[in-house]
Structures are given as structure tokens and as C-alpha cells.
């Protein structure tokens, strides 16, 4: 993106979003089977960890694939 052999910033962003997505999605799964986990927050019945984690995974994967250093080269 910004130099011939340099890894794009979007690849780094994709990596961290994927990692965060996996962790948050896993927390959402755990919450699904253990309703007391995170029950103190409002609207916990919407399981926001689950779909927000999934969204982060999707965005992360898109960036990782689109800005994969091997593909960009």
C-alpha cells in the first residue's frame, strides 16, 4: 500500500480485528450457555458479543485476504 515491500496497514488491522472477533465471539458462545456471564448489562438477551464478534471476524477476514502481503506482491 505505502511501499513496495511493506505490509499494508490494513493487513495489521485485519489481523487484530480477526483476533478480537474470535475472542469476543467465543465469549458470546460461552454467554449463550452460561446466561449468568455478563448478565448485569442491559439488553444482554440480544447477545451482542455473538454478532459483534462475528462482524469483527468478517471484517478482519476481508482485510486479511484483500491485503495479504503475498497477494499484494
Amino acid at each position: 500500500m505505502v511501499g513496495e515491500s511493506r505490509i499494508s496497514i490494513w493487513f495489521f488491522i485485519g489481523s487484530i480485528l480477526l483476533i478480537y472477533g474470535i475472542i469476543i465471539f467465543a465469549a458470546g458462545i460461552y454467554q449463550l450457555f452460561n446466561p449468568s456471564f455478563g448478565a448485569g448489562v442491559e439488553l444482554h438477551q440480544f447477545h451482542s458479543s455473538l454478532w459483534w464478534g462475528a462482524l469483527l471476524i468478517i471484517i478482519g477476514l476481508i482485510y486479511l485476504i484483500k491485503f495479504n502481503p503475498r497477494k499484494v506482491k
Binding site: I23, I24, A27, F37, G38, V41, E42, H44, S49, G53
Partner: peptide, 12 residues
Amino acid sequence: LARYLSPGLLGL
């Protein structure tokens, strides 16, 4: 943040 975000999301 504390009102709506459960563990994991709160860290984010």
C-alpha cells in the same frame, strides 16, 4: 460502556 458491553466487548 459499562451499561451495554458484556465481558470482551467491554475490553474492546
